[in-house]
Design a protein around this nucleic acid. Structure first.
Length: 502
RNA sequence: GGGGUGGUAGCUCAGCGGUAGAGCAGCGGACUUUUAAUCCGUUGGUCGUGGGUUCGAUCCCCACCCACCCCA
């Protein structure tokens, strides 16, 4: 296997970059070209918050002295006086720069500085005659020379590919992009706080697994050199988190990355963020109430309300989420199927072929019904809906129902037609779990490459006794998509996976 | 994997068989309260890549690459 090569030096040099490199060279000759002694007193947003409401007459006698720093996004030179707009993490502030106030030398230098350069400025707050809070600058420095030109100052980046590949530029140019990732941070903070408030312990479990487990998915393979053994990037943390229940940590959660070796789409990135959590002495009915409360809290953190808008349609997260069995959901959203057809495995196989699927021969009625649900119904579940009563054969880690044969105490949550969460009462019977693993191994041998491996240590852990519990995984990226009104998972992942640049 | 759309100057976009255009950015100049500042002048392109058709291709055809959207 070949090591990745260092990329060749950029080949996209042009006259603008050459011009700027020459300016940088001149800076180097004058002294420290990249100084790090800049200290600021205020952020832009802070200035607007604290002083934006004041009138020119109120500001002037106060002589409020500030030091700001940021990237120059706009520049308007009018002879011996200029305006420039600095952008920092929280917003923008206008500078008023005159030759009289900063001196001839600095002023002449400033006229050569470029959009995208990072500046620091000190001066006194005032309001322009159009009422914009600004800094009357008397000290001005070029802090970091920018060699590459920014995109067109008004339209910014339009090409989605460039926005994803050069997210740093997208973040400079797009307030909307910045806001999406600020909201993402708020959502995750709110979820973490919600969990901590409910006595959950945050933990971190391995990313490198000797046996991939906890989900039906294809893993990424890697290799541990010192141990000379294959390893897998985790597809789910589930089996490790439940080992912690055995260990006596009765409420645990982890917010972290999972890796699945699958295609890319608007809702799939090969690495994605999942929160999984487990609570002893609870069941899947408690879990549904808890999960929706958590999502509601996240929505309020993101949008201030649980009645949100997604792609022009409202989504009501405030009301209790609907709960339907798989069959109820098909009956409701694909009512042309008869009861007899839905109970007929041969019919379902034929029907699935119409959707271009080739159901594996070992699948039984419940799994076929689930496949039909996925084809006909899932995408229609716009309002939050729990689908319940998943068949045992596709739920190898879930507790079987005490009353319904072949059914587990499991749900999946759908919102805007997308799977957002998956949870169940946990299977804590070590002998049942061992039998389920054996069936998975059989399925794998029958050609199901997403079937699970037998995890002997996990069985050993269960044999010490795991308290009855329920647990759930929430797809954080998809939840962030929902709560930031983003159409693609790539819009909520800072550096989404793309094919290598040509 | 299939279908659709797109790839032209650093950026945003026109052009669509006859030697490649605008705005912004850049460069030179004017301008001491601008707001995507304005005004005058000006540099800059293997028109995604490789073939083909044609007297001539950014434009038509084929293949490929990359992206976005839809479907599987």
């Amino acid at each position: 296997m070949s090591e990745p090569q260092n990329p060749a030096p950029p080949q996209d040099e042009n006259h603008i970059i050459a011009e700027r490199r020459a300016k940088l060279k001149a800076l180097r000759e004058q002294g420290v070209a990249f100084p790090n002694d800049v200290r600021r007193t205020h952020h832009a947003a802070q200035l607007h918050r604290e002083h934006g409401h004041k009138t020119a007459e109120e500001l002037e006698p106060q002589r409020i002295r500030v030091a700001v720093a940021g990237r120059m996004m706009l520049k308007r030179v009018m002879g011996k006086a200029s305006f420039a707009t600095l952008q920092d993490m929280g917003g923008r502030i206008q500078l008023f720069i005159t030759q009289d106030n900063v001196g001839d030398e600095t002023y002449q230098a400033f006229k050569k500085w470029d959009l995208g350069d990072i500046l620091s400025a000190e001066g006194v707050l005032f309001k322009t005659k159009t009422g914009e809070l600004s800094v009357k600058v008397d000290r001005l420095r070029l802090v970091t020379k920018s060699i590459r030109p920014l995109p067109e100052k008004f339209h910014g980046l339009a090409d989605q590919e460039t926005k994803y590949r050069q997210r740093y530029v997208d973040l400079i140019m797009s307030e909307e992009t910045r806001q999406t990732f600020i909201t993402r941070s708020r959502i995750i903070a709110a979820i973490r706080q919600f969990m901590l408030d409910h006595d959950f312990l945050e933990v971190e479990t391995p990313m490198l697994h000797p046996i991939p487990g906890g989900a039906a998915a294809k893993p990424f393979r890697t290799h541990h050199n010192a141990l000379d053994m294959p390893m897998f990037l985790r597809i789910a943390p589930e089996l490790f988190l439940k080992r912690l229940l055995v260990g006596g940590f009765e409420r645990v959660f982890e917010i972290n990355r999972n890796f699945r070796n699958e295609g890319l789409s608007v809702r799939h990135n090969p690495e994605f963020t999942m929160m999984e959590f487990y609570a002893a002495y609870t069941d899947y009915k408690w879990l549904m109430d808890f999960t929706e409360a958590c999502i509601r809290a996240a929505a309020i953190a993101a949008q201030g309300t649980a009645t949100i808008s997604y792609q022009g349609r409202t989504v009501d997260l405030a009301q209790p989420f609907a709960r339907l069995t798989i069959l109820d959901a098909i009956r409701k959203y694909a009512p042309h199927y008869t009861e007899a057809q839905l109970e007929d495995a041969d019919f379902l196989r034929q029907e699935l072929k119409k959707f271009g699927l080739e159901p594996l021969p070992h699948l039984r009625l419940g799994a076929l019904q689930l496949a039909l649900f996925e084809e006909t119904t899932e995408s229609q579940l716009w309002e939050p809906t729990y689908i319940i009563d998943y068949p045992v054969e596709v739920s190898p880690l879930a507790r079987a129902s005490d009353t319904l044969p072949g059914i587990t105490e499991r749900f999946e949550l759908f919102i805007t037609g997308r799977e957002i969460a998956n949870g169940f009462s946990e299977l804590n019977d070590p002998e049942d779990q061992a039998e389920r693993f054996r069936k998975q191994v059989e399925a794998k041998e029958a050609g199901d490459d997403e079937a699970m491996y037998y995890d002997a240590d996990y069985i050993r852990a269960l044999e010490y006794g795991m308290p009855p519990a329920s647990g759930c995984g929430i797809g954080i990226d998809r939840l962030v998509m929902l709560l930031t009104d983003s159409p693609s998972i790539r819009d909520v992942i800072l550096f989404p996976h793309l094919r290598p640049e040509a």
